[in-house]
């Protein structure tokens, strides 16, 4: 068997395993974001939204759709990889892969593929639910699809690093709870950063999630708080940096064995 064929089979196996994993527990992975989104639409969109009035020329409920879709993509892709990889370490079945000839980059790609698939799938489901509450018009389908996939990749990489370095279950939930959630809420899901005082507008620019949400908003509604070129550049830099870091870590076999031995 040539090495290309071998790598293809190994990668397919890892991707299939990862996708089967989250599909098997769909009540835990796909349903919760749907319920959360419904509640957001009900409370912020239907009850509070009409009192807020239009935002960037759109009804408030239409304005929050891109942010809510991206929010579910971010949490879905991040938690999928972090929890799946950490569980494999904790229960030691990562050793199944470690003792096999699977190269490190294939392991990395396999887990990332699982995270991206979950992120994109959750995004599609949330978008479908959004159509029940709001008017969903996608101005640029290509840009929307690109930002969804790239965002899923960035946060799957983040989740992978979290999973690699986590030593206990708490470590897998600390980043999503104390870093990711505040950044998402402060990244303009529910408001336009132009509403903020100048100083806080400036501070918001340091939040990478602001850029992905604004590309998504541009893709959906055709309007954005920040430049699209800059936003894609930020995503590009994040992908390069995180990929480099994850690649270096995954090449060092010790990272798989953290807290195992």
């Amino acid at each position: 068997m040539n090495s290309r064929h071998y790598v293809a089979v190994a990668l397919y196996t890892l991707c299939r395993k990862e996708i089967t994993r989250f599909m098997r527990i769909w009540t835990q992975t796909l349903i919760p974001p749907v319920i959360t989104t419904c509640l957001y639409f009900l409370i912020f969109g239907n009850l509070i939204g009409p009192r807020i009035g239009p935002m960037q020329g759109h009804t408030y409920i239409d304005f929050i759709v891109p942010g809510l879709v991206l929010m579910s993509v971010i949490t879905g892709s991040y938690t999928n990889v972090a929890s799946s990889f950490f569980s494999a370490k904790f229960q030691r079945f990562i050793e199944e892969i470690m003792v096999s000839p699977v190269p490190s980059y294939v392991i990395l790609l396999g887990y990332l593929a699982g995270g991206i698939c979950r992120g994109v799938l959750v995004g599609i489901v949330v978008l479908a639910v959004s159509a029940l509450f709001a008017t969903v018009n996608i101005t640029s389908p290509v840009m929307t699809a690109a930002v969804v996939v790239l965002t899923a990749l960035v946060f799957a990489l983040g989740g992978m690093l979290n999973g690699m370095f986590a030593k206990k279950f708490d470590d897998v939930s600390i980043i999503p709870n104390f870093v990711l959630t505040p950044l998402i809420y402060l990244g303009g899901v529910f408001y336009s950063v132009r509403m903020l005082p100048d100083i806080w507008q400036l501070v918001s620019l340091a939040n990478p999630i602001l850029y992905v949400i604004n590309i998504a908003r541009y893709g959906f509604l055709g309007s954005s708080d920040v430049g699209i070129g800059v936003s894609f550049a930020v995503i590009g830099v994040a992908i390069v940096v995180l990929t480099h870091f994850a690649w270096c870590c995954s090449s060092a076999a010790t990272v798989y064995a953290i807290d195992v031995r």
Binding site: M1, R24, Q91, I97, S100, V102
Partner: peptide, 21 residues
């Protein structure tokens, strides 16, 4: 050291896949 939530069938099939089978 296998995933105790997986079935024996999936465990062995996935293992073979890691070796390019």
């Amino acid at each position: 050291n296998f995933n105790q939530f997986e079935s024996p069938w999936n465990i062995v099939i996935n293992h073979a896949g890691y070796y390019g089978v």
